[in-house]
Design a protein around this nucleic acid. Structure first.
Lengths: 111, 111
DNA sequence: CATAATACATAGGAATGCGATGTATCGGAT
DNA sequence: ATCCGATACATCGCATTCCTATGTATTATG
């Protein structure tokens, strides 16, 4: 997968996943990897900084959950602001797809 | 339009346009702007450096055409290597769309 | 003749995502 | 019992992309 095309989809998909239910970082990456049949494999260096930024921007809120054993996870929830951002991003994504496909279709047929 | 999502589509669309016929930079930008009903408005600072890089990478070749008056245009053609890159990029784009839409569809229905 | 559109170019900066690396816990296999 | 892979978090610095701003010059329009 051409990694350049992925840019911008990270936050879109994180917000979309969190609109289902609260999740923690590792779970988010694993879910995307599974749901896309391995097309998307987010690295820690992409995922965690992005989560931190989205939390700083108020799109999500995180909360530590510590099991009695000591294992820690940070669960993230989508906020009202995050839901609004998600709607906008989905709209942008839809427009982008239409615009790109309109161009590609005009050029199809040449091998 | 969320500009982050655009990343990576520039070279894809340039190659797609040039697979129709040779074009010059300004014409490429105008065509994309028109064909997408204004969704895409590439700036010179994006377009020309990208064309230079693609030529350096051997995906396209440019040739100056000077009218008798003195006006100069640089017409670009897609190369064999560029056509191969286009096929790959279209494939990546298709996979990306499917993968993203698969995630989004699972989360639809929540307003 | 002035102004907008055409047509090219580059320098500097912002933003994103990645590779590498580090820490620590948990579960299964040997 | 111990080792190792998977889980779970984090950050630094880099590469890449694209945009803003700026500059030059020609052509068409009012």
């Amino acid at each position: 997968m051409d990694s350049e095309l992925l840019k911008g989809t990270l936050s879109l998909l994180i917000l979309s996943l969190l609109s289902r239910k609260p999740m923690y970082g590792y779970e988010i990456a694993a879910t995307v990897h599974r749901d896309t049949d391995g097309s998307f494999t987010w690295r820690e260096g992409s995922l965690y900084p992005s989560l931190h930024k989205m939390e700083a921007d108020g799109l999500i809120v995180g909360e530590w959950e510590e099991k009695e054993t000591g294992r820690k996870r940070r669960y993230y929830q989508i906020t009202k602001k995050g839901k609004a951002a998600l709607r906008e991003k989905v709209q942008s994504w839809t427009e982008l797809c239409q615009a790109v496909n309109r161009i590609l279709e005009k050029s199809d047929g040449q091998p």
